[in-house]
Amino acid sequence: MIRNSSPIDRLIDLMARLPGLGPRSARRAVLHLIRKRAHLLTPLAEAMTEVAQTARECLNCGNVGTSDICPICTDEARANGLLCVVEEVADLWAMERSGTFKGRYHVLGGTLSALDNVGPEDLRIPQLLRRIGAENVTEVILALNATIDGQTTAHYIADQLEPQGIALSSLAQGVPIGGELDYLDDGTITAALNARKRL
């Protein structure tokens, strides 16, 4: 392969910095874009420019959109008293893909970690506490990762909300849809057994 154009090299270098891409896959992607200039490269460039100019964080929930308040927060039908707390925007988008949850979200922007100098004020926990009263929230679903930091953060929030008499719940842990018991680790099987439900 001969590369003699510096803008192409720059594009490859930038693409290679994206999650999931390395130098080789970035080269392949750029070559593919160049071959599909009209159908892919130009529309992609235009879309990226537009996103660069308009993308912003929702002032209410922390979701990423193109307006100050995201469509989920402005949708009155979703003001049903349910608030799902997630660590990152990617988690919110994952929940939305399921199409099951019809309430609103709150993105913390990470988890508590004293060792990494991440305290409650570095997360969107104060905003969460303010929203509880302002939006008449009746149940908070703590959809945080099953890691030490994730669970510490869940306990921290639960500890603050318990006196307010709000229903608190967390996502169930156990057998994934389509999963086979034989392939699950002992911890997941134990969690699934503890969270068993009556048929």
Partner: peptide
């Protein structure tokens, strides 16, 4: 105290 409590629980 909430932070301590969360960690002590774990």
């Amino acid at each position: 105290p909430h932070w301590y409590h969360a960690l002590e629980k774990q």
